[in-house]
Amino acid sequence: MIDVLAMPLQTGGLDALLGPLYWFLELWSGVLTWLAKIADIRMIQEQNAFMHRAFLVGICIGVMAPLIGTFLVHRQLALIGDALAHTAFAGVAIGLFLNSVINLGVTPYLTAVVVAMIAALLIEVISEATDAYNDVSMAIVLSTGFALGTTLISINAGGLTVSVERYLFGNLSTVTPQAAAILLVLFAIVIGVVGLTRNQLLYVTFDETAAAVSGLPVNWYNRIMVMLTALVVVGAMQIMGVILVAAMLVVPVAGASQVSRSFNEAVLVSVILAEISVIVGIAFAYHLGATAGGIVVLVAVTLYTGAVVVGKLQTVYGDNSMPEMGSINANETESAAD
């Protein structure tokens, strides 16, 4: 069973599959090198190829995390990102464990994807059965994931404790070309699925009952949503780390909903806030030699605070005039009543 699963995931086959993406990474690297020359930005000069990948991964995270986060936050599901990140950590641990025990040769990010998706489905199915997303079941999934992760790692102590820190806190310099390519695949899946099902996801998020009456298979869209969340969490984990990854799903979205009127505007603003956080955060992390995840979140929270202030100013000084409300006009319908 494991062999069957592992075959397409093993490094050799995987690299062949990701071939075109490596070409894209080269291209991207070339663009940034050129940018470094003309703008004199030493951070992204040619020998810092890891920073090229870090920025690419960061930019992708800045789009997909708030995009999915928008659909989660407005259903009071902000916690689910955190729960999935911790189960993804278990996935990483399983990957590392299998690699050292049976020499599986799979990147831990892929086992993390698999485990986080299974956990996502599990949370969703439990919530369907009990008819509520509850804090308790989410907390149980979260701690089970983390407990499983730490246990597997401590069993294998020695070789593993060293490398696990980058999964916990994220690390700019360890974004390998393979990890970046995997992220591009995750990014394409997330953007593609959200692009296709945006109407349905919006309806289900805003008004689940009405969406169900209008014939949407609500449970299926919920399952899609949590599985996409799992993909985003695993993708963002390499820079943000397990512990802080959920912040990218929540903080920019919360900031955007302070200042936006429409849903489309909210999505756009949250992506902009997230991009600023990620790019500024990564740049600062490079110069300070700090962990990127922490700085990205600090920038995001600062932006959030700014958004709260702007939002308050908008309500005080903005256009508060209530327009004249028209009467309900029964005669507007095609055949006049009278």
Binding site: H74, R75, T205, F206, S257, A266
Partner: peptide, 12 residues
Amino acid sequence: SASKEMPITVRE
């Protein structure tokens, strides 16, 4: 039944 905090316009 509908979400109460979501930013969304009447037209949307």
